[in-house]
Write a protein that binds this DNA or RNA. Structure first.
Length: 226
DNA sequence: ATGCATGAGTA
DNA sequence: ACTCATGCATA
């Protein structure tokens, strides 16, 4: 049910449009920089064209940045990356927004969260592989031109409702973990039952399980993914 | 740094 | 309904 997805995924295809939901500090800077992307795209993937090129080739290639998939290399790169990033005096958030200025087709900005997760290896193996060349490109670019300007957060506006984060209490969380230990993928009915027992919304429980599964798959976690 | 959530793509 | 990449909000 979830196998053949070992190809380079689609990481920069999220429009990121809270539109109706949480319309706060978005439209301005993000909309502009996204509008500037040469490839607006639906299925954009900087590796897409590459894949096509490789379709007729043997089981290997050897161009472009490394397509290595060794967790050790990723770990080493992540470490070096963080080190150099700090050396440059740049924050994770800065890196995220700076990626857009790189003008790589199909690559927009990323959040502080994602950069942080990349550095701490808390992303899936595939995600790490996909992001590595992009962050590497940024790093080289930034080091090459160690003297530019910073875009500052145009945090303005006031008045739109913000998303509120649900917080699952410790006791409930412990129960969920216990359930997860025996059954990581409970059926819809099971989820409903658990939700009722813990007095949580069914959707909250469902998402919790999804996130737990995703966590298990991170390179940083205790994964055996590859 | 991390918890809960969204949304596109998929099976 | 799930996976996967990603992000807002928050600790």
């Amino acid at each position: 049910m979830m196998s053949m997805n070992s190809k380079q995924p689609h990481f920069a295809m999220h429009p990121t449009l809270p539109e109706h939901k949480y319309p706060s500090l978005h439209s301005s800077s993000e909309a502009i920089r996204r509008a500037c992307l040469p490839t607006p795209p639906l299925q954009s993937n900087i590796f897409a064209s590459l894949d096509e090129t490789l379709l007729g080739l043997p089981a290997h290639m050897g161009c472009m940045s490394d397509v290595d998939a060794d967790p050790r290399d990723l770990e080493a790169f992540a470490e070096r990356f963080k080190q150099r990033r700090i050396k440059l005096g740049v924050t994770q958030a800065d890196v995220g927004s700076a990626l857009a200025n790189l003008k790589i087709p199909g690559v927009g900005s990323l959040s502080q969260s994602t950069i942080c997760r990349f550095e701490s290896l808390t992303l899936s193996h595939n995600n790490m592989i996909a992001l590595k060349p992009i962050l590497q490109a940024w790093l080289e670019e930034a080091e090459g031109a160690q003297r530019e300007k910073m875009n500052k957060p145009e945090l303005f506006n006031g008045g739109e409702k913000k998303r509120k984060r649900t917080s699952i209490a410790a006791p409930e969380k412990r129960s969920l973990e216990a359930y997860f230990a025996v059954q990581p993928r409970p059926s819809s009915e099971k989820i409903a039952a658990i939700a009722e027992k813990l007095d949580l919304k069914k959707n909250v429980v469902r998402v919790w399980f999804c996130n737990q599964r995703q966590k298990q798959k991170s390179v940083g976690g205790c994964a055996i993914n590859y």
